[in-house]
Amino acid sequence: MTNAISPLVAVNDVSMIYRTRAPNGEALETVALKNANLEINQGEFISLIGPSGCGKTTLLRLLADLIQPTSGSIGIGGKTPQQAREARAYGYVFQAPALFDWRTVMGNVMLPLEIMGYNLADRKARAENMLALVGLEKFSKNFPWQLSGGMQQRVSIARALAFEPQLLFMDEPFGALDEITRENLNLELLRLWRETGKTIIFVTHSIPEAVFLSTRVVVMTPRPGKIEKIVNVDLPHPRDFDTRESPRFFEIATEIRESLRHGHGYEGNE
């Protein structure tokens, strides 16, 4: 991507410590994220990868102002996360579709537009566009439960895109899906990213998924959660199923796997 002068997302020395109490009353500190530094440019596709407890979801929630850091600062397009959230600067796709059962597919995609005060005609047009983009225009009148898990997740992606945020946070959106559905949705997501030019930050614990989708992969390791390494993915675009079989794909995947293992090395010594 082009070298922007200032990064879209800047994470400066951010730590997140959860203070809880053990059953015996002893105070517990869980370091979910330690001294994270990261810069993300406009138009990048960044994956955060790592095992459970490495702080990848925490980092995403910090960026989205769903939680606030214990220390450090975050900038999103020159704003604080709270300002960015209030300016509706990003869309968020969760681990589960989190659709509203009482709304049709169309109604679900229109939800953010209603909240943000778009008029009815505009809401309809945008929702229809987004549903077409994820290939679900025929299901607009259905209710979420009438759709498969993969289709529900596509609806939630359409919902996140409906108000056309330039930034998209995705927290293991395909984690609960079968491998075949997942690979198809990966392809669709890549196409969507190319067509819309958005910046996507994507949490996953699948190495092939991360390599296939990303421009850069942020490798994270647990206890305490931290950024271990950032791997450049120089595979050419557009990528397709053949990309997954190219030698370079395996090289990058191996690099990621090794740094993940390296991060795990001192786990036993704790």
């Binding site: 989205a64 300016a87 509706r88 968020y92 969760f94 681990q95 989190a98 939800l111 909240i115």
Partner: peptide, 14 residues
Amino acid sequence: VNPLTIDLMRSYAA
């Protein structure tokens, strides 16, 4: 209420 939907509404600054 499903906590994810609360997060969702928060992300919309609803």
